[in-house]
Design a protein around this nucleic acid. Structure first.
Length: 296
DNA sequence: AAATCGTGGGC
DNA sequence: TGCCCAAGATT
């Protein structure tokens, strides 16, 4: 267990909340009165996808499906189309499945219990707490990659975020303000600090509200020790091929034959393997006459 | 538990 | 240009 540092445990959280009041971005899912469903949609879209790309899709999505029941009643193919090019389209499928679960098991209301939230498809440890906190106004520690990076630097004096651990929740809870309403804002505020100031590549320490409390700065900005985390390749991978195939099917008005998918990728074996994996994932469906389409 | 799963913008 | 990175979840 980490004991809260006296240097940090009083002031840092309060300072970060005050900074947020002046520096926060005006994002639509932060509008006062947005319901937990709107927050859930935003959180799933934001998993590994930048804010700028999410914003227009989120607006269109909420116009079209303002409630879980509305999304639950929609065929998966339409949902995949509306997801557009946000990436990782299995998230669209899972969000629809979550909407169905909410409708069938929770009377159409997004649950406020972290465990019930985490039981929903596509909702993991981060998203469950984010919805409980930002959507339901609960005091909850919320830990994403931004928060892990801020804690690594501010608290532990290290340059880079450690991989997720159970102790992350205690680390961030130790910094949270006592007042519940401020603690709720603290959870967004730390994420915002990590997104705008304490960024991965070139941290803007000159603009940081807690630079005088920062263990990393006080230690002289030591470089990261140990192996650099390997970045995922993309070009030529199945991920790229799946994306190409889905791109063709999203654009198609009607089911297409195998020949129509050939331009998506030259290597026939890889193309076939990826098409098969898309079928397995339920992102593509084959009609009775052998044509391919987004699932109906 | 390491690998897999899209996409595009910034440097 | 090519690499790095972005509010993770799942198996």
């Amino acid at each position: 267990m980490t004991s809260p540092s006296p240097r940090l445990s009083g002031p840092a959280g309060e300072v970060i909340v005050d900074w947020y009041a002046t520096a926060a971005r005006d994002l639509p899912w932060r509008t006062p009165g947005v319901d937990p469903w709107a927050v859930l949609v935003s959180e799933v879209m934001l998993q590994q996808t930048p804010v700028a790309r999410v914003e227009p899709v989120w607006r269109a999505w909420m116009d079209r499906w303002p409630t879980p029941a509305a999304l639950a009643a929609t065929p998966p193919g339409e949902v995949i189309r509306a997801w557009g090019k946000l990436g990782y389209p299995r998230r669209a499928l899972r969000l629809r499945e979550a909407a169905i679960a909410v409708t069938e098991r929770h009377g159409g209301a997004v649950p406020d219990d972290v465990a019930a939230l985490q039981a929903l498809p596509g909702v993991g440890t981060y998203t469950a707490r984010a919805v409980a906190c930002f959507g339901h106004g609960q005091r909850q520690p919320v830990v994403d990659t931004n928060v892990r990076r801020v804690v690594a630097r501010l608290v532990h004096g290290r340059a880079e975020a450690a991989p997720a651990r159970a102790s992350d929740l205690a680390d961030i809870s130790a910094l949270a303000p006592r007042d519940d309403a401020r603690a709720v804002r603290f959870s967004v505020a730390v994420m915002e600090l990590g997104a705008l100031v304490c960024v991965a590549r070139t941290p803007r320490c000159g603009a940081c509200p807690v630079r005088d409390l920062c263990a990393w700065r006080l230690a002289g900005y030591p470089a990261h020790e140990g192996p650099a985390r390997r970045v995922q390749t993309f070009t030529g991978t199945d991920r790229q091929v799946r994306g190409r195939l889905l791109d063709v099917l999203r654009a198609a008005e009607q089911p297409v034959d195998a020949a129509a998918l050939e331009p998506a990728w030259d290597d026939a074996a890889q193309r076939a393997r990826c098409l098969d994996s898309l079928l397995t994932d339920g992102l593509v469906e084959q009609t009775s006459d052998g044509l391919f389409t987004l699932p109906t």
